[in-house]
Design a protein around this nucleic acid. Structure first.
Lengths: 129, 129
DNA sequence: CTGAACGGCGGAGTACGCTCCAAGGTCAAG
DNA sequence: CTTGACCTTGGAGCGTACTCCGCCGTTCAG
């Protein structure tokens, strides 16, 4: 698959795809004429990249994890360990979110603006976390 | 509270605090000598900023939400609406995380590397989502 | 009064993640 | 053979979020 089709199928711009290749997030074979040629697996891989990105992973981290996956091609244990690491990170982030959500929920209906300089003499602070 | 103490109490560097003030994320009164003077509420506010940031909100968004909070000082409804908006965003992000977690979990123990160019003839693809 | 610790300011620099541009090569259709 | 869609490269530029720097003023202890 050439770069234009990949861009269309993933919604990732051609420039960005070239950028991803430069930083090692993507690897392209080349056609005899020099054009990039991406395998079909690139499409789900990019979906994964986008998801991981919105979850706060940097492109460098994502690339590194991808590389680790390639380096341990048939060791199911290594893969599982990697996934479990990621799951732990995800769980931690979910806990953070839950905490923020709870904090927000607890404020719905109350009048505490989190901020507000010197209007009240420091009364009921509900700032756990 | 002067900038140094605030930096110590929050773990946010003085430079960053000055930067936050420049972009309107923080507002400092000034002492007669020109030094910044932050109210104690700044400490929880910065905690909140850090949390919101790790959840993917930009500083501009956080500043804007903070400003909205100040603009509706005693309208509990406005506050609640704002919080509920945030909660929705948080819920959406949690759902994304849950999806990624499920995807990762489903791969623990399997040998599907997400990537991997042309090693198998495209057999069992478990790529929903 | 001097020195150290603190603060202020403006501006440059950095890392990340793109995004755009110019100049040019490739290739199929007309 | 030309046109147009597609591709290549290198490099510049941009927004976000800092981070560092130099040079200066302020405050306080000794």
């Amino acid at each position: 698959m050439r770069i234009g089709e990949l861009a269309l199928r993933t919604g990732v711009s051609k420039d960005t795809l070239r950028f991803y290749e430069r930083i090692g997030l993507l690897e392209g074979d080349r056609l005899p004429n020099g054009y990039r040629d991406f395998p079909p697996e690139t499409v789900p891989w990019l979906r994964y990249v986008r998801t991981a990105q919105t979850l706060g992973f940097t492109l460098a981290e994502i690339a590194r994890h991808g590389a680790e996956l390639k380096d341990a091609p048939d060791s199911a244990q290594a893969l599982s360990a990697l996934f479990e690491d990621k799951i732990q990170i995800v769980d931690a982030r979910m806990a953070e979110l839950a905490a923020l959500r709870a904090e927000l929920t607890s404020r719905v209906g109350t009048g505490c603006p989190l901020r507000e300089a010197s209007r009240e003499p420091r009364g009921g602070g509900a700032h756990r976390r």
